[in-house]
Design a protein around this nucleic acid. Sequence first.
DNA 1: CGACACATGTAACACGTTACATGATTTG
DNA 2: CAAATCATGTAACGTGTTACATGTGTCG
Lengths: 184, 184
Amino acid sequence: MLALLQDEPKYGYQLRGEFEAATGATWPLNIGQVYTTLTRLERDGLVRAASSEGDGRSMYEITDAGRTELANWFQTPVARESRPRDELAIKLALALAVPGVDVSAVVQRQRMSTMQSLQELTRQKRNSAEGEISWQLVIESMIFGAEAEIRWLDHCEAMLLRHRGKPRPAPQTYDVPADQEARS
Amino acid sequence: MLALLQDEPKYGYQLRGEFEAATGATWPLNIGQVYTTLTRLERDGLVRAASSEGDGRSMYEITDAGRTELANWFQTPVARESRPRDELAIKLALALAVPGVDVSAVVQRQRMSTMQSLQELTRQKRNSAEGEISWQLVIESMIFGAEAEIRWLDHCEAMLLRHRGKPRPAPQTYDVPADQEARS
DNA sequence: CGACACATGTAACACGTTACATGATTTG
DNA sequence: CAAATCATGTAACGTGTTACATGTGTCG
């Protein structure tokens, strides 16, 4: 939001439109949230209701604090620790950690699904117009991610084969503190 | 949680311990959340307070509904659409979409940061013991992801150079509906 | 004894998601 | 005119995060 407001005051619908124009509707943005977010940004002093005429629409403009925040965001790299937990990695790790799960099947189903996504993404990339560079980069980001995921899944299968037959490695149970066994 | 409860009833602290044993403390799990999550799972009928003795601890066991849910989770691949928005992709897309941002600098800073993470991950992988296969896979998942990110960043820089000097492509502004210009 | 890990919770908060309400304007 | 789009909100809900409270057990 702050990035989009950097040049000129804008209003809710416009913000959603420009966000989706920039990211190619890859991550649809609920219009309701735009307004709640604008309210919260205003609460935090990062935007304010624009003084200039808005032709009947509620325009918002970025504040100095908002510009600082924005510059900070662009300057600070996205840290790996700050990213959300990777559901797929967790799923595979748990499939390995608990008995009775056909890990191979999980890997293969995921592989099929990801391959299909990759195909769809490639199709989208082909159909993308020349001018929409930012959208192309977003699509390519997802393509690179999907490719890495497939490589990782292949790597997982190789690991599985190498460890085939070996006893479930180091039961991975949490050591129950001994003396608490006989607690009240 | 459901996956860890599959074999036998367990208690809060134990669940956190085993989760972190399986994922290698890559994503630290707040103990408070374990309890709130257990409460919510119980609310939804996926776990219940275990009937067996727990030596003074509150044990939980999975229910039939929980087993169904769990089997479903393992059977269903993680869809690309269901993943959280990629902050880095959004940042780069917006850096391109709005004027006055040094995109190159953003890319280069991110590249440095990601390279450093990659080094750290590689170090962790070397230091990981033999038996901890699920943790190794998690680390490798992050390594594959970081490598893909670097490749993508390189690709972005190449794109930037190719488009150097060209006018900012297709201003990407949301078309303001014409007749609304003169609204009350 | 004092510090620390174990163990179980609760409250407050932030944020994203969905659904709903309301009205103006455009378009077939 | 009717339907769709534009436009601005609000309410309810789910979940993750942080901080706090409380008590037991272990260990130097």
